[in-house]
Design a protein around this nucleic acid. Structure first.
Length: 552
RNA sequence: GGGGCGGUAGCUCAGCCGGUUAGAGCAGGGGACUCAUAAUCCCUGGGUCGCGGGUUCGAGUCCCGCCCGCCCUACCA
């Protein structure tokens, strides 16, 4: 039994949550549930990064107070837990949680040996909130840049280069997949320079956590945000030992866009503060929706007609576009803020998807079809194909036919007898799931579970229980007993991945006498001779083909 | 500009340190069965493995160059 801390990144709350972040939450949730079932002591935490300047800008755009915008949107993120069936133990908000500010201040002081002031001067665009190297116009705003000269705090990252390299190279900090590990090693090898960890109150617009002892400066949002991993553990009170240094594993789940912060900056900060680094950094790639990046414009207007801006940018890393306007996004319309008329906005809203297709379908797609490396395109069509093909026709139908046969041939009474036919697959599945999840491979894990259902379906066809019943064969008891036991095991195997479905399957297979069979996963595909009706089912998630251009 | 990663059957993807006729799922085609959510099961895939060179007895699998996509980073002002 191990003690395991699992975290997701905490997203900016300048917009509502989208499917990309749901991916990260679900991945972390699966790992949390998996380890709890293995008997490990698990803490799974998430939260929101309220202190980003992005939030300030979003509030200004909407004409409301930052506090209000942040509170409203953070609630949207917190609300994901229910619809997505997340088993979070904690949710920390960097602007509102009393543990955070005091924790960040303490953490800052703990790093004081590596913090120093340095003069900085550059050309700054107020609109972009960033410095530009040239003395020309701001490329985004066509406005003149301002010469800003100020002193900021810097963190002595450079001195940790060799140590960081060694930690990652040796696997003491495991970066998964290996492609990301190589990437970050190359980055470190190229040299690390000290980075700025504060900005003036003016540039921060007075939003954020002031530097302890230097109220004219605000702590850099990344320093602040990364700190959540510790502050949520009551670092401020010095009570983080149980879940940080005391944990066997400290696992961060994040998107590829924020790898550097988690594999370089954060471990260095921890070392500086005298804390142990994380043990696992699990990196996922991004989602696109109907072939488009999940971006600012794609979400415009989703927020209750307020023209809610925004990319869910993010510490979240799960977002497709991390730094709008500055990252060279290919999203042409991002500049004007005009929404993409043709983009299926609702498809990026995880709650909307759950309402339309159910949490099992959404989780199954995220786990089953997102590869370890490489972006994937989400479409309602693909989600439906997975759901109907595997959950409904494969798994659901298996349970349904088994329960039906038990009723038809044995009055619902589950026979005691067993055969060994399915023992091998069932045994294999357990091991494969553990192996796959250890490798951060959700597709392989779900494939191993699904393989049990497939094998069970083959077993039914091979054995032909209906024939045994006709012939009055005594073998029928053992066959039915085996199948019910297998369905029960499927419920167990599925628990970390599809907790809701797991409960429903277990409900169908519980007890000496089974309940009447009920379809567990109603189809979502358009069916029957009434295409009009079918299309209404899909209206909120039109196919990419029809949706893509329709409104444009 | 630099660094990293991708580009494999219509679609989505597996292919570890190079080695017999390049695989899976889905879709498509054919068949079987009837317990079941018109579900299931069986058979059926011959694709320049992005392009061009090279190394090797032998290369999706290694090296070089190029093209395309994505990520990070920089932008010799």
């Amino acid at each position: 039994m191990s003690r395991i801390l699992l975290t997701t990144t905490i997203p900016y709350v300048n917009a509502r949550p989208h499917l990309g972040f749901a991916l990260e939450l679900v991945q972390a949730d699966v790992l949390a549930r998996h380890h709890r079932l293995l008997g490990d002591e698990v803490r799974f935490q998430t939260g929101t990064d309220d202190n980003s300047l992005k939030n300030v800008r979003a509030a200004e755009a909407e004409g409301i107070a930052v506090r209000d915008l942040v509170d409203r949107n953070a609630a949207e993120f917190a609300r994901l837990a229910g619809p997505l069936s997340l088993s979070c133990d904690d949710f920390i908000r960097t602007s509102a949680d009393p543990r955070h500010r005091s924790g960040v201040e303490r953490f800052w002081r703990a790093c004081s040996a590596d913090l120093y002031r340095r003069h900085y001067e550059g050309l700054y665009c107020v609109g972009c909130e960033q410095f530009y190297p040239s003395d020309e116009q701001c490329p985004e705003h066509d406005a003149p840049l301002q010469r800003v000269s100020e002193e900021n705090w810097f963190f002595r990252l450079s001195r940790y280069r060799d140590e960081l390299y060694g930690l990652i190279d040796s696997g003491r900090i495991r970066v998964e997949p290996a492609e990301r590990r190589n990437e970050i090693l190359a980055f470190i090898a190229a040299g690390l320079s000290d980075f700025s960890v504060s900005r003036s109150q003016a540039r921060a617009r007075g939003w954020g956590i002031p530097v302890p002892g230097d109220p004219g400066q605000v702590i850099y949002v990344w320093w602040d945000a990364l700190g959540n991993y510790l502050t949520a553990l009551d670092y401020a009170k010095g009570e983080h030992g149980h879940w940080w240094s005391g944990a066997d594993r400290r696992i961060h789940v994040l998107g590829k866009g924020v790898l550097r912060f988690h594999a370089v900056y954060w471990p260095a900060m921890l070392l500086s503060a005298g804390e142990v680094p994380p043990t696992d950094i699990l990196v996922h790639d991004y989602l696109t929706v109907d072939g488009r990046k999940i971006s600012k414009s794609a979400l415009s207007g989703v927020g209750g007609g307020q023209g809610a801006p925004g990319v869910l940018s993010a510490v979240g890393g799960a977002s497709a576009e991390v730094c709008p306007g500055a990252s060279g996004s290919l999203d042409v319309s991002g500049r004007s803020g005009g929404g993409l008329a043709g983009t299926d906005l609702s498809a990026v809203d995880p709650i909307g998807l759950v309402e339309a297709y159910g949490v099992d379908a959404v989780r199954w797609w995220l786990l089953r079809e997102v590869p370890r490396v490489g972006d994937v395109d989400f479409t309602a069509r693909r989600l439906i194909a997975r759901h109907d093909g595997e959950l409904a026709d494969g798994l659901g139908n298996l349970v349904n036919r088994v329960v039906s046969m038990v009723h038809r041939y044995r009055d619902g009474i589950v026979p005691e007898a067993r055969e060994t036919a399915l023992d091998e697959v069932r045994g294999q599945a357990r091991g494969l799931v553990i192996e796959a999840l250890e490798a951060f491979d959700f597709r392989a894990a779900t494939a191993a579970v699904y393989a049990v259902a497939e094998e069970a379906n083959r077993y039914v066809n091979r054995v032909e229980p209906w024939r045994l019943a006709r012939e009055g064969s005594p073998r029928l008891d053992a066959v039915l007993g085996t199948l019910v036991a297998t369905c029960r095991e499927l419920a167990d195997l599925l628990a970390p991945f599809l907790p809701d479905a797991s409960v429903r399957i277990a409900g169908q297979c519980r007890g000496e006498r089974l309940a009447d069979p009920v379809p567990l996963f109603p189809h979502h595909r358009p069916r029957g001779p009434a295409p009009a009706r079918a299309s209404s089912v899909l209206s909120s998630h039109p196919s990419p083909v029809t949706a893509g251009r329709a409104g444009g």
